[in-house]
Write a protein that binds this DNA or RNA. Structure first.
Lengths: 129, 129
DNA sequence: ATGCATGTTAGAGTGCGCTCTAAGTCAAGC
DNA sequence: GCTTGACTTAGAGCGCACTCTAACATGCAT
């Protein structure tokens, strides 16, 4: 069970088979093994890589940015420091993005509150009727 | 000063002139007034609308979704309840998105910590040297 | 009156991240 | 042996949100 078929990997990662192939073509995934019939299967390590790539995507890192990270990975252990630096600067970007989103959300929430008081003035205490 | 030229509106909102025109074409902005020479200018109300639209965009609402909201606005006061509902369901979507982003960020932070301990094992106490 | 910055238009182009298509292969079950 | 379903490929297509182009107009400063 440490080797998943395409459909199992789809179920496990939440990505589509199309997207898995696309990531492979873009070199985010490499050395994906095949069975005797030429079909892909995904090892535990690959599934972990896919999940990490998904986390990078979900936080807004571009495919290109992820590729840079993966390329460092492929170049060996001596790139660990650079990889960490990459992740750290991404983390900063995500924190900034979160801050901006929270500020925008706040503005939206104030607007909702405005609607609530406005609707309340028109039809007050409706819940007590 | 309650009427801003294009370049002033650009400075005030952080959007490009291209994007302002694009939003107008997509009907997110309407009745943008013109001076005698046919040039646009932006009233206080328009600037506020642009900033609110930017907040919706920054939280991931699509242009189409914003258009739906604006269309309700144009139809008059009796749509206030619907508009509020729209904002509320958007708020929920944003909260869910934030949650997902935080979870992904957490995964990335754990990876960074892993790098840190790994690099520390190779060159421990470097800071004390 | 000349030059230059700032604006106007319609429409084309761009970059991103998938997403789909079409035609074919393979293995297992009936 | 035949069907079915899961897979394969190269490459095209798509939706989104801008972003830019080209040719032209206006208005202020020298």
């Amino acid at each position: 069970m440490s080797q998943l078929s395409v459909s199992e990997a789809v179920a496990e990662t939440g990505l589509s088979a199309h997207t898995l192939r696309y990531y492979e073509k873009e070199m985010l995934l490499y050395e994906v093994p095949r069975d005797s019939g030429g079909r892909r299967f995904y090892t535990r390590e690959l599934i972990a890589a896919i999940k990490f790539i998904s986390a990078l995507r979900a936080t807004g890192m571009s495919i290109h940015g992820i590729k840079d990270y993966i390329d460092l990975y492929r170049r060996g252990e001596h790139t660990a420091q650079q990889r960490m630096g990459l992740l750290q600067s991404h983390e900063e970007a995500v924190q900034a993005q979160l801050k901006k989103t929270r500020a925008s959300l706040n503005m939206i929430q104030r607007k909702i509150a405005l609607y609530q008081s406005q609707l309340d003035a028109v039809a007050p205490n409706k819940q007590r009727a």
